[in-house]
Amino acid sequence: MQFTENCNKIFAQSIDTYHIKDHVDTPIENPFEKEDIQHLLYLKNWIDTVQWHLEDIIRDPEINPDEALKIKRRIDASNQERTDVVEYIDSWFLTKYEGVNTIEGASINTESPAWAIDRLSILALKIYHMQEEANRENASAEHKKACQTKLNILLEQRVDLSTAIEELVQDIEAGKKYMKVYKQMKMYNDPSLNPVLYKEGK
């Protein structure tokens, strides 16, 4: 099984499990051992899935402002957790290929494998929910047709992205490309870097 095939299978498993209860406070029950890369992939998608639904909730035009602020802060925390997990996945790749000698002329990719996998995880959610819309019983025929067209494009995009990730990993394994991981230096969460937070009296 190719790596991305396994990713897509795990993402689908996470999304399906979440939608059994379909609630943002459902606790995660990760079925994979912590030492396994599959554990990180499942965790990554579960975070994305919960955040997807938090983003839906916060867009309710009648939401209570206090509740909206709580959700916004929860989304901020989720974004940080998502970034941390992406970096853990990249660390797994770095360890896996640390013994590879790069060939002359080896190049660096515009994004690391884990950030590409991050996009694959989000794409799995887009596919799931567009499929829902394409099959929604109370929707118009026009709505269903438009959503099916979008779904077909998303499915094609998943094939293309999966192929690109496989090629990137193969190139890293062969020494044709090399990895460098830059830790995300987010400033707005840091009390010493966000001017609103480090103002006198804050």
Rank of each mutant, 00 (worst) to 15 (best):
W46A: 03
D90A: 09
V196K: 12
Y97T: 05
D60P: 02
L197D: 06
S121L: 04
N45T: 04
A134W: 01
E55C: 04
E33Q: 12
H23N: 15
D60S: 10
K72Y: 05
C147H: 10
Q80H: 05
V24L: 05
N79V: 01
D56P: 02
Q13C: 04
V86K: 09
I153S: 11
T26H: 09
Q2A: 02
N135E: 13
I108A: 06
D118W: 03
N64E: 12
E111R: 10
D60Q: 07
S78Q: 15
E87S: 08
Q80R: 10
N45S: 07
S107H: 01
D66E: 13
V159F: 07
P65E: 10
N109G: 01
D22I: 00
Y188D: 15
T4Q: 02
A164P: 05
K199Q: 13
I172D: 09
V181I: 06
N138D: 13
C7I: 00
I153G: 04
H23P: 00
Q2M: 09
R119S: 11
W52R: 09
K72A: 12
N138P: 00
N101W: 00
T26A: 10
H19T: 02
K21S: 14
T95W: 03
E142D: 12
E133N: 11
H23T: 08
A139W: 09
R82D: 13
K34Y: 03
T26Q: 14
E87T: 03
Q13N: 11
D76M: 08
P61A: 08
I172Y: 07
D171L: 04
N135K: 13
E133C: 02
I20M: 08
I47G: 01
N6I: 10
L123V: 02
I122T: 06
S162R: 08
M187Q: 12
M1L: 10
H143Y: 13
I47Q: 11
M130R: 12
P113N: 06
K145G: 00
G201W: 06
P65W: 02
L69N: 14
E5W: 01
R119Y: 02
D90C: 06
E33H: 15
I75W: 05
L40F: 04
A12D: 13
T26P: 01
S121E: 04
N189L: 11
E156G: 15
F93S: 11
Q80D: 13
N64K: 09
K202P: 00
Y97W: 07
F11R: 01
Y128F: 14
F3I: 15
